[in-house]
Design a protein around this nucleic acid. Structure first.
Lengths: 153, 153
DNA sequence: TCGCCGCTTGCTTACTTATGCATTATATAA
DNA sequence: TTATATAATGCATAAGTAAGCAAGCGGCGA
């Protein structure tokens, strides 16, 4: 139950569904077992640079699209993964990574660029990446590494 | 001195320099001859979809890049699937759904939004969706459901 | 073990933004 | 012009967010 884990969950929630206030977010977190106050969420959202956008139909929050907008050349996986990552799951030799909106392409590209022999290839959609690994054990190594990277944001 | 002109000025100011609050913006406008209240600015910023981003060094506003991403409300899977579905096939824990042209993205998004634990994730192309399921039996359930939905059109 | 330090959090309150309602300006039609 | 409708705005206040402060916690060296 660390701060970092909580912030990852926050990013995922906000990337996934409309949230209209920090109080609403607080309740969504509470449903998942995270019990914190609005104060803490205010600070989390500052840390995550989560934008608050007013629209005709109400307030919306959004996770920053690409942390990459300011960088030139290739981003390393380590540098962008924590910012764009939402969650991860796997089955057999496949890993499915969920990312924030528009986050799949850059992450997939960064993974490809690593040339990791455990990874046969990646397929990226809008906010989902399928990683095909060489074997189940390869998948285990890759997933472990990604999860640890995710925590370093 | 129309509302539209004022909003244009607001966009320019915010694009040009850091503004930390609507009150600060009000003063900047006043210097240029626009005398309005914070209420009006709140409404202007809603109209312009100006985002408020908290950072470690204070609040900042930013104007939306391209005002393209304005999707309101989301379609349920049941409501759109019958219209967009073409055919379906599967192997192991994977499902491949073929859709009408441009139908893949919205369906994939609707599937994602359901949060079905049987579904690890989806990857959508132009008219094809790959659905990665948690297991073969999960795949069975998901495919059956989709096929039944398809019949209801 | 004790005391210090840094990090995180809740409490409380200051600050900021959004909005219901009433009023005023602007447009439209006869 | 006058009547009528629509949009824009201000006022007052509700709703929402941020921040100072102190308490709680864990690590670390004396």
């Amino acid at each position: 139950m660390t701060k970092r884990e909580r912030q990852t969950v926050i990013r995922e929630i906000i990337a996934t569904r409309p949230v209209g206030s920090q109080e609403e977010l607080r309740q969504l977190l509470a449903e998942r077992g995270w019990d914190v106050t609005q104060s803490t969420l205010s600070r989390d959202m500052r840390d995550l640079r989560i934008a608050r956008i007013p629209t005709p139909t109400g307030i919306r929050y959004t996770v920053p699209e690409a942390a990459s907008s300011s960088e030139e050349g290739r981003a390393t996986l380590a540098s962008i993964f924590p910012q764009l990552f939402a969650r991860l799951d796997f089955t057999g030799n496949l890993i499915v990574v969920r990312t924030v909106v528009a986050g799949a392409q850059p992450i997939a590209e960064a993974i490809d660029n690593e040339g990791n022999p455990d990874v046969l290839g990646t397929i990226a959609g809008e906010n989902t990446i399928l990683i095909i690994c060489r074997s189940d054990s390869a998948r285990e190594r890759v997933a472990k590494r990604l999860l640890s990277l995710a925590q370093k944001g």
